[in-house]
């Protein structure tokens, strides 16, 4: 039954003229074009196209198993997509096809940083060291690929002092100055989440991909996270793409939301549009499209518009 509705949705999307190009932000930093990822017979992501606007916070949402993390892994070079193109255009006009870059170059050259659903810090290394590892590229160059560093030349010492200053600024920003020299693995969960974001930011990314940054946070920490993400967008001009289940985060800070279900895009728009989209509600509540109106009434969602769109989709 659900599978059938899935295919209907696909048909609806394909009926529109050139879905990847229509609508969306005018100056996208990232264009995902007809992305398909198959694992054997399973299509985790099917013909997905969306854009991430420059300087926007874009949220990728969807029920469990919708293929969000798969999309992330494709964008950040951990998976090679079966089909499709992922184009990143930097401010200066350099364009990278992310699906063709080797894993580490997605960060090193294209400037895409990410965090992980299960936090992946370097647990035995200190908070400061975690951030310094993220500045590998500039420090490596300054240390003459270790040769100048072994000899203790002043150029490297200067670069390291700068890197430490930058790391210290980030540590201050996430409120961990008093624990900077402690192993990262000893920090509480919320601090680890923030540290992982700070570490990703230390690579000077143009696009920051966050995989469920609010998972496991309490409401207060979620609010702090909102502030941090807004700050990243406004002060650094870094575009943010995030996967999130916590709607209080998604609805408050997103400039744009893309909704996935069964690996297929079912909606794409501003938070207000998404909030009233019947297909999204159906996907989240797990009901058929024609039952949406009834369920909406039940949960107290007003909706003349929702009612009509439910009618068209059915």
């Amino acid at each position: 039954m659900t599978l059938a509705t899935g295919t209907t949705r696909l048909a609806v999307v394909q009926d529109e003229p050139s879905p990847a190009m229509s609508g969306g932000p005018a100056d996208p930093i990232l264009v995902v074009d007809h992305l398909t990822m198959r694992f054997g017979g399973l299509t985790a992501v099917g013909d997905l196209s969306f854009k991430v606007g420059r300087g926007d916070i874009t949220a990728l949402i969807g029920p469990n198993g919708a293929g969000k993390t798969t999309v992330f892994n494709c964008i950040t070079g951990f998976y090679k997509p079966t089909e499709g193109m992922i184009r990143l255009r930097q401010q200066g006009g350099e364009t990278y096809l992310l699906e063709r870059l080797p894993g580490h170059d997605v960060n090193r050259l294209a400037g895409v940083a990410r965090t992980f659903q299960n936090i992946r810090l370097f647990p035995q290394m200190t908070v400061l060291e975690n951030l310094l590892v993220a500045m590998h590229k500039p420090l490596m160059r300054a240390s003459g690929f270790s040769l100048a560093g072994i000899l203790g030349l002043p150029g490297y010492r200067r670069a390291q002092a700068e890197a430490i200053a930058k790391a210290a600024a980030w540590i201050e920003r996430i409120g961990l100055t008093h624990r900077a020299d402690e192993p990262a693995g000893d920090l509480p969960y919320g601090d680890q989440r923030r540290l992982e974001i700070a570490r990703a930011m230390c690579t000077d990314p143009v696009l920051l991909c966050l995989d469920e940054p609010a998972a496991g946070l309490n409401p207060r920490e979620s609010a702090d996270l909102n502030t941090l993400l807004r700050m990243i967008r406004d002060e650094y001009g870094t575009s943010v793409l995030l996967i999130e289940h916590d709607m209080s985060v998604v609805m408050q800070i997103s400039d744009r939301i893309v909704v996935l279900d069964y690996g297929i895009k079912i909606a794409d728009g501003t938070p207000d549009e998404i909030r009233n989209d019947t297909r999204v509600i159906a996907a989240y509540l797990g009901v058929d499209d024609d039952e949406v109106a009834a369920v909406e009434a039940e949960v107290g969602l007003a909706g003349t518009s929702a009612g009509t769109s439910a009618g068209t989709s059915a």
Partner: peptide, 18 residues
């Protein structure tokens, strides 16, 4: 530091451009 980071988490290393 990259060696030690590699010992701790190789995937995270890759995501940081190492």
């Amino acid at each position: 530091r990259a060696w030690e980071a590699l010992r701790e988490d190789e995937i995270a290393c890759r995501s940081l451009g190492i």
